[in-house]
């Protein structure tokens, strides 16, 4: 991660609130092209809210979100998706009454008229996740937890995104499956996709990311290279324990 690499996403003093409660109170952080970044923090710190602001689900109150140099704060979700930002929603976020293949098809909704691209998307996803190919006609609501997460990731890949935001990769999954998913996330990153990973499991996140940001009460508290932070497990522990008090 040489510093010369271009920024793909930059948040500048972003504020956002739910009703009267301000959740983000001036967040700054950056993602470079081809980088994997972790957003860490306890429950309610505002990690998922950051993702919601980037994707446009939540309108920001103030601040700029620059994606490839363009301010996308306040842009509609449909349009941010078209720019190449996709999200793997937390808690799976599948469409349970649609079949596996229909879920994938909806993943390619913005490029639905480019039939060849959609077809290539199916092939790519089924290549990565052969399990999904076996179950293509099954309702997504009937998949197991791990398969569901595979589908969510696969669906986000249909668009050939530039920036992929994963909300809770490991939540509620068996360690064996998490390992498989970690490998796949690495592969996706190796193919040139920048990734933001929101995680509760700090060790997991630090092991696959280049850089980590710690969010606390809607503000960035500190950040650092994942490698260095991983060696300082005393620091991590203190952060999480202090916040839990």
């Amino acid at each position: 991660m040489s510093p010369a690499r271009e920024l793909i996403l930059e948040l500048d003093q972003v504020r956002a609130s739910y009703g009267a409660v301000e959740v983000l109170r001036g967040v700054n952080f950056t993602v470079r092209k081809g980088e994997v970044v972790a957003l860490l923090g306890t429950n309610g710190a505002g990690k998922s809210t950051i993702l919601r602001c980037v994707s446009g689900l939540l309108k920001t109150d103030a601040g700029e979100i620059r994606y490839e140099g363009q301010n996308i704060a306040g842009m509609a979700t449909e349009d941010t998706v078209r720019l190449g930002i996709t999200q793997v929603p937390g808690g799976r976020g599948l469409l349970p009454n649609l079949s596996v293949e229909e879920n994938l098809r909806m993943g390619a909704y913005p490029i639905r008229r480019q039939r060849a691209k959609v077809k290539a998307g199916y092939d790519r996803v089924y290549g990565i996740f052969p399990r999904l190919a076996e179950r293509r006609r099954q309702l997504a609501g009937l998949l197991s937890g791990g398969e569901g997460q595979m589908l969510a990731i696969g669906r986000a890949l249909m668009l050939e995104p530039k920036l992929m935001m994963i909300d809770e990769l490991s939540l509620g999954l068996a360690p064996l499956i998490v390992q498989q998913l970690v490998k796949i996330v690495r592969d996706i990153n190796a193919s040139g996709v920048s990734i933001i990973l929101v995680e509760q499991s700090a060790n997991l996140a630090l092991s696959i990311t280049d850089h980590a940001y710690f969010i606390e009460k809607g503000q960035l508290r500190f950040d650092g290279s994942s490698k260095e932070l991983l060696e300082r497990d005393d620091l991590l522990r203190s952060v999480f324990l202090a916040a839990a008090r």
Partner: peptide, 15 residues
């Protein structure tokens, strides 16, 4: 059908 299933997820897919 996707929107009926989950409005938010559908919006994240660009619908």
């Amino acid at each position: 059908r996707a929107t009926a299933d989950s409005r938010e997820t559908s919006r994240l897919l660009g619908i």
